[in-house]
Nucleic acid binder design. Structure first.
Length: 423
RNA sequence: GGAGAGAUGGCAGAGUGGUCGAAUGCGGUAGUCUUGAAAACUAUUGAUCUUCACGGAUCCGGGGGUUCGAAUCCCUCUCUCUCCGCCA
């Protein structure tokens, strides 16, 4: 949620920024500012009425103590009028506030100045391309065939026991999965991230805190009986650990990493790019989350990008980094870098990581603040990134490292798999 | 699933209708002392909204009610804990 004070002081700038998302926000922002003004005015009036009524009550109390019952009773009559007035003003204030909030939650984050305008994936900027795209042998196959040949993943078993999009990993496929999770967690820890193992279900307040609710309600699995949501990413439980907290400025940046399975309904995305591991309802991911001082967030974003690059290099995968355009960026993000790995067998780029700075957008919803040197509370900045999401990493390892003799495990991963080849 | 207890500031924990934004302790911050630190002592220390400012308003789990006045009384919801049962 955007900060009201920001909108008050930067209305034109915000509208200009949001235009990069193809959103015409001028009307809605002016509506917000009008409601805000109205609400504040009502509150000032209300406060005055309440102050008067408080003063009256106090003197009534004193009169009673002095035994001046008649005088006290006379004053009581006055309070009725004030009470009615305050009730009315209170309702007005509440109405204005709700209307204001309802508008405010519809606005996505204002993109950073580096973000270019654009409609979708085609307008993203390629920041860099690293690594060599391997030339595969003649019989090279896509990962779904390799997974089948080497008995690594069964999509059919998943369909049998759960449904489409819930694969079963087995044998070296399952072990590769476990190895990657450990590899990522270890590397993240070495980079300064503390490891967590959070719950895989969260309450509605958490969904709201990180911005999945009310925006993307339909994308999460919901357990009606207990009103819990299956997490779509570890970002949700991890960031929400700090919801409603005022953290010590010296404890910043707070750096967390967590492995969790991720559950996504992917409603409406059937048909395209869903083959094999490309799009799943349940997948594994190791996430990194940063909570930091506003002055440090863009430096941290760069650090996170470098960290993810290092992971991909250790896995010997060719990748490119995209800076997302306004139209392709998530609702809560101010600046997002996507990482794509090239699959030589599918002959296309696969998104494997998304690293974002949310600035105060999430922190404002969550009331995640720090106490500054000025003694006042300020909103923190939050960032997160995948380091990394497994399915497409597995797909690209299988596809890019395949040889006629089998699939070669990258050097850095061997200590974790304890096997060097899948054959 | 059954029974009971509870929810107060960063934490612990008092407070059963007005003088309570709330005792006390711990923690935090600053100072005195010290070569430095510790200890001791002294002072200070909640959040949100609003106002140019002085100030004002709100907040004792959430919501509603009684009352001139509610942390305190009533209703309701949510959550937590304890015991019993079941169980990995």
């Amino acid at each position: 949620m955007l900060e009201l004070t920001y909108l008050r002081n930067n209305a034109a700038k915000a509208a200009k920024g949001l235009a990069k998302r193809n959103i015409n926000a001028e009307t809605i922002i002016s509506d917000i500012l009008r409601l805000d003004e109205q609400r504040r005015q009502t509150q000032t009036e209300l406060d005055a009425v309440l102050a008067e009524s408080n003063a009256l009550s106090k003197s009534i109390g004193q009169l009673f103590q002095q035994g001046k019952v008649e005088e006290a009773n006379a004053m009581k009559a006055k309070t009725g009028e004030l009470k009615e007035k305050s009730k009315e003003l209170h309702n007005q204030e509440e109405q204005a506030r709700h209307a204001l909030d309802n508008l405010l939650v519809t606005l996505p984050n204002v993109p950073n100045e580096k973000v270019v305008a654009g409609n979708g994936a085609d307008d993203n900027e390629v920041v860099s391309t690293v690594g060599e795209i391997p030339t595969l042998h003649a019989d090279a196959k896509p990962h779904w065939d390799l997974a089948d040949d080497y008995k690594l993943i069964s999509f059919d078993l998943g369909v049998k026991i759960t449904g489409a999009g819930f694969p079963v990993y087995m044998g070296k496929g399952a072990r590769l999965q476990r190895a990657l999770i450990n590899f990522f967690l270890e590397e993240n820890q070495k980079a300064g991230y503390e490891e967590f193992l959070p719950p895989h279900f969260v309450n509605a307040a958490s969904g709201y805190g990180t911005g999945q609710l009310p925006d993307k309600e339909g994308q999460m699995y919901h357990m009606q009986e207990d009103d819990l949501y299956a997490i779509p990413t570890a970002e949700v439980p991890i960031t929400n650990m700090y919801r409603d907290e005022i953290v010590d400025v010296n404890s910043l940046p707070i750096q967390c990493t967590a492995y969790t399975p991720c559950f996504r309904r992917e409603a409406g995305s059937y048909g395209k790019d869903v083959r094999g591991l490309n799009r799943l309802h349940q997948f594994d991911k190791v996430e990194i989350v940063n909570i930091c001082h506003p002055d440090k967030s863009y430096q941290l974003l760069d650090d996170m990008v470098k960290h993810v690059e290092m992971l991909l290099q250790k896995l010997e995968l060719p990748y490119r980094i995209l800076r997302l355009c306004g139209g392709d960026m998530g609702f809560t993000s101010a600046l997002t870098y996507d990482f794509e790995v090239y699959s030589a067998a599918q002959e296309k780029w696969l998104e494997v990581s998304s690293v974002s700075n949310f600035e105060t957008f999430q922190a404002n919803r969550m009331k995640l603040r720090y106490k500054g040197d000025d003694g006042k509370t300020h909103l923190c900045h939050t960032l997160n990134g995948s380091a990394l999401a497994l399915p497409r990493i597995v797909a690209s390892i299988l596809e890019n490292h395949q040889t006629p003799e089998g699939i070669r495990i990258p050097e850095a991963l061997i200590p974790y798999t304890s096997f060097e080849w899948i054959s």
